[in-house]
């Protein structure tokens, strides 16, 4: 294997991880934009999505994989919806800081519940199949990476369409820009907040499900997935969907480069040092919100 092939191989794995981080970051961004809450339970949605697919794969039901993924996304989406409507909405405090703390507690509770229901062992999920492994020279692209790539593209296009081409997506932006003006337009911020949680949870579950064959499922996976997603969202410019995706890709690539060139023990540290460097140079993130206004 030439050193060039080695570099490409490392970048392929980095991108694959980056796609997942990008999707995790997107969940943070969507919820933050609609509610001003940083939902630290977001990583758990990825874990739960993967867990549901893993449990179904190990069961005797013998479901086709697309059905398992659909069930994981649906169930986790409902869980996200309930996070907002049952817990966040009924909390007396409206202070975002308090609600952020609440989401940390929720993450711990979800982790505990999953380990209680499905056990503390690592679960493996077979590849989704259909595609063959791609081999270009000595560069190896696993078939599951193609699924991850397709999911990433589909979600990115879907989110772009939602925010730029539908009134409901614009209403979500309006709520984040000025909740009172949005309410005076007849937009109910509570409904959109619940929808944003459901959407973030669904996207998280999808990311968790397609990455399950690459990253074995474990009840504590939500911790690092949440942190990486959060870091990616911050690096890209919190609240900016394109930034979240870009941040995810960069963190995935840097991690993979670190691991590929001998510092695998430090890959997480290197990713976070990179985050600090980005914030030192660009405090608003890579694609910081440019505020244009005239008064």
């Amino acid at each position: 294997m030439s050193s060039f092939e080695m570099l490409v191989q490392v970048m392929v794995s980095g991108l694959m991880v980056g796609f997942i981080y990008g999707l995790a970051a997107l969940g943070f961004t969507i919820v933050y934009n609609a509610t001003q809450i940083v939902n630290f339970a977001n990583g758990e949605y990825l874990m739960i999505g993967g867990m549901i697919v893993a449990v179904l794969a190990q069961s005797t039901l013998d479901l086709p994989i697309y059905l398992s993924v659909l069930m994981a996304v649906g169930a986790t989406g409902i869980l996200g919806y309930l996070t907002q409507t049952v817990i966040i909405r009924n909390t007396k405090s409206r202070d975002p800081m308090t609600l952020v703390m609440l989401t940390i507690g929720l993450a711990v509770a979800m982790r505990g519940l999953v380990s209680f229901l499905f056990g503390r062992d690592v679960k493996f999920v077979p590849d989704f199949g259909v595609f063959d492994v791609i081999l270009i020279g000595n560069i190896y692209i696993p078939s599951q990476a193609i699924w991850v790539f397709i999911t990433f593209i589909a979600v990115t296009l879907g989110i772009w369409f939602l925010f730029n081409r539908t009134l409901i997506g614009k209403a979500m932006q309006a709520v984040s820009l000025d909740p009172r003006a949005a309410a005076l337009c007849g937009i109910n911020p509570g409904n959109l907040a619940a929808m944003s949680f459901a959407l973030a949870a669904g996207i998280g579950a999808l990311a968790g499900a397609v990455s399950a064959p690459i990253q074995p499922v474990f009840y504590e996976n939500g911790v690092f997935l949440g942190l990486k997603g959060f870091a990616a969202a911050v690096a890209g410019g919190f609240g900016n969907p394109a930034g979240a995706i870009l941040g995810g890709l960069i963190i995935g690539l840097v991690e993979s480069l670190a691991a590929g060139y001998g510092a695998s023990g430090y890959k997480d540290a290197i990713a976070f040092v990179l985050l600090i460097l980005i914030l030192l140079v660009r405090p608003a993130g890579l694609i910081g919100k440019a505020h244009v206004s005239r008064v």
Partner: peptide, 12 residues
């Protein structure tokens, strides 16, 4: 209501 200070959605 057309609110005080207009409150247009600045980024939209």
């Amino acid at each position: 209501q057309v609110p005080e200070g207009r409150r247009v959605f600045a980024d939209l």
